[in-house]
């Protein structure tokens, strides 16, 4: 990690801790800066970017480290979100506390990861991609239809009134005033999510530089050779699926509690593809690249949404093109251009 800071602060003159302090302070005051300059909506967008970053780091374990192309990754996000929604909402009348749900979501999503990973172990490359895609769709279709004969997921309507995180009886979605500063729900969640993201980054770095991380990369580079080096490729691949799924599960839980509402619509194939784009665009296998890719893809389209209308009005006199579709056109163009100019991603490993 210190390398990163050295890059920013030029090493020699400034001791590394100056960099740490600077970044910590920046991260702490960021939501207030964002709110002051761009409004509260942007703090929420920032929060969603943090959730996506967790999700992308989870997928990076599967795709980036182990080289297993997973196009149904959003299913684990969905599992995490619905686990939270079912355990902390009026749907079943359960209201478990967050410190109980997070580990449950972690484990449930991990189990799903193993269950969905197990049948695919013999598949390579694009066959794996299409099967995982199928699994992702299956999960979504079940969520969409499990409202009868027994109502579990509430079908396409989704589950509402999901409990937010409560610490000592205080709900994080409410606004609080601390030291004269107003902490909205978006602010409070920002810190929770930031903490979880940093924890995820920490775990990813540790895993990457371990015996298991090396085994994953070995499988990615040459599965046969990895076997010949005594790696139990079946178990190590399942572990990658499970770890990736678990992070997705936590991110999903956070999504459910932050939004207070989940429905199958949030877990469509396009979302899986979006997360994959974040990983690949940023630089597959490189944790910092993945985070960069996530923030670009989570924030850029929002910026385009905000600016494309006014710019057209100022330059062309009226809004010629619907800002929503223009945003998607530019998004598609950006994906193509970035890949053409930097095929290994914006910030590749090595």
């Amino acid at each position: 990690m210190s390398k990163l800071f050295l890059m920013f602060f030029g090493g020699r003159k400034n001791p590394v801790w100056v960099g740490y302090v600077f970044i910590t302070v920046a991260l702490i005051i960021l939501p207030f800066l964002v709110e002051a300059s761009m409004g509260r909506t942007w703090v929420r967008i920032l929060d969603f970017a943090l959730i996506y970053a967790m999700l992308a780091l989870g997928l990076n374990i599967v795709v980036g480290f182990a080289g297993l192309l997973d196009l149904g990754y959003i299913a684990f996000y969905a599992v995490g979100a619905y686990t939270w929604a079912l355990l902390a909402s009026p749907q079943f009348g359960l209201h478990l506390p967050f410190w109980a749900i997070i580990p449950i979501g972690f484990v449930v999503a991990g189990i799903f990861g193993v269950l969905l990973g197990a049948p695919t172990l013999r598949l390579r490359g694009d066959y794996l991609a299409i099967v995982t895609l199928g699994f992702g769709e299956i999960v979504r279709i079940f969520l969409n239809n499990l409202d009868h004969p027994i109502n579990i997921t509430n079908g396409p309507v989704g589950i509402n009134l999901i409990d937010p995180i409560q610490i000592a009886g205080v709900s994080l979605t409410k606004s609080h005033e601390i030291l004269g500063l107003e902490f909205s729900g978006a602010h409070s969640y920002y810190y929770v999510l930031l903490f979880l993201l940093l924890a995820t980054v920490f775990v990813c770095i540790r895993l990457e530089n371990s015996r298991l991380g090396r085994a994953w990369v070995a499988i990615r580079e040459d599965e046969t050779a990895a076997q010949a080096m005594g790696i139990n490729t079946r178990n190590v691949k399942l572990l990658a699926f499970a770890m990736g799924a678990s992070f997705g599960g936590i991110a999903g839980g956070m999504f459910a509690s932050f939004q207070g509402f989940v429905s199958p619509e949030s877990f469509i194939l396009l979302e899986s593809i979006m997360v994959l784009c974040m990983v690949v665009l940023g630089g597959m296998g490189n944790i910092w690249g993945v985070i960069l890719g996530t923030f670009l893809l989570a924030i850029l389209p929002e910026v385009l949404r905000d600016v494309s209308g006014p710019i057209q009005e100022n330059v062309l006199g009226r809004v010629w093109l619907d800002p929503e579709s223009l945003r998607m056109v530019l998004f598609g163009l950006a994906l193509i251009l970035v890949m053409l100019l930097r095929p290994s991603g914006l910030w590749p490993k090595r």
Partner: peptide, 13 residues
């Protein structure tokens, strides 16, 4: 994966 992403971009576009 690079052409896969451009393919997705093309599709969205």
């Amino acid at each position: 994966l690079a052409p896969l992403i451009t393919a997705i971009g093309m599709s969205i576009l």
